[in-house]
Design a protein around this nucleic acid. Structure first.
Length: 465
RNA sequence: GGUGGGGUGGCGGAGCGGUUGAACGCGCCGGUCUUGAAAACCGGUAUACCCUUCGGGGUAUCGCGGGUUCGAAUCCCGCCCCCACCGCCA
């Protein structure tokens, strides 16, 4: 959530920000509702102040009179009753007026809130402007000495590559048919070495970020309340991407939602808390199953392991002080962790600076890390894919957008409470990361070499198949 | 799933429907005393929003929402959460 005060002071900044992100939101309607609400509140508050004042003055009198009414004789009673009525007249009128204002505010509030939640965080000035993801900017690339994506796979390795889809079929690593029988399209079942490899990658990534980079290992619920989805900024805009467990239909008090990333649980941990400044920064890592409906992606990446409804992800999150320089430094560090991981896996990758149009509502800046996937990209005359980068990681910098929604604060130096900054980045997500691993490490005989850093997690195995 | 108990400030714990934003204790911060520390004593210790002539003023908040009332932490209803026991169970 953005700061409503800032919106009032500088609405243009937010209009431009939304425009740059290609997000529609009616800022003028929001401002109008806000000023209307504030006028109503001011009126209501002054009436309440008057009511409180009167209440203190005449309240005890009414109490006494009502007490004396019980003992009063029939002749005294009408006089006392009239006196009470007179005393009650003004506060009673105020009460009606306050209730009227209450109704008006209650009508405005949900509309105001809905709009406010939709206002995106403006992109940082140094984020390149763009119209679509085609305008994202490549920052740098890295390759192991044994592979250069500028040359063909054959030139690099001496044979034409199989796609991961062929590899997992031939090596019996995944059973798609039965997965679809059980759960429908975009599902998969890892079998045998496929499952071993998947678990190896997750465990390697988790150990790497926790043991070597000091992130605290955590588990998280993946079934959460709506507040948690709103608080982390995935709702209302991404509502149709989340699986919805309609428990209210069974008479329960609230529904639940399946999370699309461990970030939701990790960020939700400290919602509504005021942390001590010396507790910060919080560095958390979790491994969790992630669920995504992939609404709007029908027909896109339907084959293979690239786009699926359920996957597993090691996620890193940092909650730090509200300091831009510190926030930026963490962003770099978190990206560095992923680069180090990719280098340990010896997978070619590039860093992609996302342009304004590719940013979601909640981030000020986002860097994608893309792994080289030989099976993607253009297909040549011989039916051989040229390879292309595919997104494997995404590192977001959010300022206080998320913590403001989550009401996650710390006590600053002067004792004031301040909303924290937050950042998040993938460490490794399977099965997607398995695509470059399988395709890059495949051998001419159809086997796949196990990357060296994963062997310890595969019982020392050096190859599959 | 059943039955019962409970949610009050950083924590513990009071609170006949009317100066209760909330006694008291602990903790924390500042001060006095002390060579220093402890003890003792004194003072201060919530959050959010609105207005401001920047001195301050106002409103809301006792799990959350609604209701009764001139007035609700206190009464009524719904929800959420926690605890205990029983049943079921990975």
């Amino acid at each position: 959530m953005i700061d409503l005060k800032q919106l009032r002071e500088n609405p243009d900044r937010f209009r431009k920000g939304a425009k740059a992100k290609k997000i529609e939101v009616d800022i003028d309607a929001l401002l109008a509702l806000d000023s209307r609400k504030r006028a109503l509140m001011a009126e209501q508050e002054s009436k309440r102040a008057e009511q409180n004042k009167i209440s203190k003055e005449i309240g005890p009198q009414i109490g006494k009179l009502k007490g004396s009414l019980k003992k009063a004789s029939d002749t005294e009673r009408p006089g006392v009753e009239a006196e009470i009525k007179t005393l009650e007249e003004k506060p009673s009128r105020l009460k009606t007026e306050i209730q009227g204002l209450d109704q008006q505010i209650a009508e405005i509030d949900p509309r105001l809130n809905e709009l406010l939640l939709k206002v995106p965080l403006p992109p940082d000035p140094d984020v390149p402007a763009g119209e679509s993801e085609a305008d994202n900017v490549e920052l740098r690339t890295w390759n192991p000495d044994w592979f250069d994506p500028k040359k063909s796979f054959r030139e690099n390795k001496g044979f034409d590559p199989k796609s991961h889809i062929d590899l997992i079929r031939d090596l019996k690593l995944v059973d798609f048919e039965r997965a679809v029988k059980i759960a429908g399209a975009r599902h998969y079942v890892f079998t045998g070495d496929g499952m071993r490899l998947q678990q190896a990658v997750l465990r390697f990534a988790f150990d790497f970020v926790t043991n070597e980079h000091g992130f605290t290992p955590m588990s998280v619920p993946v079934i959460v309340r709506e507040e948690c989805m709103v608080g982390t900024g995935f709702f209302p805009t991404g509502r149709d991407q989340a699986y919805h467990i309609a428990e209210t239909a069974r008479g329960a008090g609230h529904d639940l939602f399946l999370t699309g990333t461990g970030e939701v649980g990790l960020m939700g941990l400290h919602a509504d808390e005021i942390l001590d400044a010396d507790q910060l920064p919080l560095q958390y890592a979790t491994v969790s199953t992630c669920f995504r409906r992939e609404a709007g992606a029908a027909g896109k990446d339907t084959a293979g392991l690239y786009r699926v409804h359920q996957f597993d992800k090691v996620e890193q999150v940092v909650i730090c002080k509200a300091d831009e320089a510190e926030s930026r430094a963490w962003h770099q560090k978190m990206i560095g962790i992923v680069e180090e991981l990719m280098q340990k896996l010896e997978l070619p990758y590039r860093l992609l600076q996302c342009c304004t149009a590719d940013l979601g509502p909640k981030n000020a800046d986002m860097i994608d890390i893309e792994g080289w996937m030989p099976s993607r990209g253009e297909v040549d005359a011989d039916g051989i894919s040229q390879g292309a980068y595919g997104e494997t990681h995404s590192a977001s910098r959010l300022y206080d957008y998320q913590c403001r929604r989550l009401n996650l604060r710390y006590r600053g130096e002067n004792g004031k409470t301040v909303f924290c900054h937050s950042l998040n980045n993938t460490v490794a997500a399977t099965p997607r990361i398995l695509i470059p691993i399988l395709e890059m490490y495949q051998n001419e005989d159809g086997s796949v070499t196990v990357p060296e850093v994963l062997r310890a997690y595969m019982g020392g195995r050096e190859s599959i198949g």
